[in-house]
């Protein structure tokens, strides 16, 4: 496959403790964790967070193979950070320190990203969308399209695998017609991609049109008056997990 080895936002149901948490609790916890990891400076703090990540993956009952595969799209960012920092740091002359800092920064980013990757892996797309909907709803009062944004994210998660397949098929078809997608300089390559992009956009627009009609036919009128098959229920464990995450984040600042 040319374009289907990306596993963005693929939900893996295992029924673990993390899977059963309220999506709002997970979203909040993730926010806490990210804001704690970002400013962390020491190797100890990083080791601490790595240990927690290992624990979280273990509890989620999702295999490392899947977690790593799902992290593949962010690896580019990690490697970029590594190389960029290495060049920047060693510019000053101290190569040893440069390598050390850049490895530290890249690992920090990697740990952070993998926490983020765990969220869609352990949360069904609709739950995730509902969680976002709930968290964004205060903003709706100031005119922010909270429900629509959450719905959009939910739909995007549904359609990503399909669009990947479609892109793959169009690429193959155009290669068959002699398109040179992988040759020439950057401008030629971008230009060569038009025969892929244009049909893809046509398909997306046509699908969007059809989906809108199908949604209307099923009685969708926006968020107002909609109920849920599984309404979000905030449980004691959700509060506990959130408090724990807050405490852990606090502790990591001291480390």
């Amino acid at each position: 496959m040319y374009f289907t080895n990306v596993n963005l936002g693929q939900y893996i149901p295992t029924g673990s403790f993390i899977h059963r948490l309220d999506p709002r609790a997970k979203l909040f916890s993730l926010l806490l964790i990210i804001s704690a990891i970002f400013p962390s400076k020491g190797v100890i703090a990083l080791g601490f967070w790595t240990a927690l990540l290992v624990l979280a993956v273990h509890v989620s009952k999702i295999s490392w193979r899947i977690v790593l595969r799902a992290s593949r799209p962010v690896m580019f960012l990690v490697i970029f950070t590594l190389v960029f920092n290495m060049i920047a740091a060693s510019w000053g002359g101290n190569l040893g320190r440069g390598i050390r800092t850049s490895f530290f920064m890249a690992s920090r980013l990697l740990v952070l990203m993998m926490f983020a990757v765990l969220l869609p892996l352990t949360t069904a797309p609709l739950e995730l969308a509902d969680g976002l909907d709930a968290l964004l709803s205060p903003l709706a009062r100031v005119g922010f399209p909270a429900h629509e944004s959450a719905m959009m994210i939910g739909m995007a998660l549904r359609f990503i695998p399909l669009l990947m397949q479609e892109t793959d098929k169009i690429m193959r078809a155009q290669l068959s017609r002699g398109a040179r997608l992988d040759q020439g300089n950057i401008f030629q390559r971008v230009k060569a991609f038009f025969p892929v992009l244009i049909p893809l956009f046509i398909i997306i627009f046509r699908r969007a049109d059809d989906i809108a009609v199908a949604m209307e036919a099923r009685g969708y009128e926006g968020g107002e008056g909609r109920t849920r098959r599984k309404p979000l229920v905030w449980k004691m464990t959700d509060s506990l997990v959130l408090v724990m995450c807050a405490v852990i984040s606090g502790v990591s600042f001291i480390l």
Binding site: A124, P125, M155, R158
Partner: peptide, 8 residues
């Protein structure tokens, strides 16, 4: 494909 809105 154009009628199914949720991923599950």
């Amino acid at each position: 494909e154009n009628q199914i809105v949720a991923a599950m």
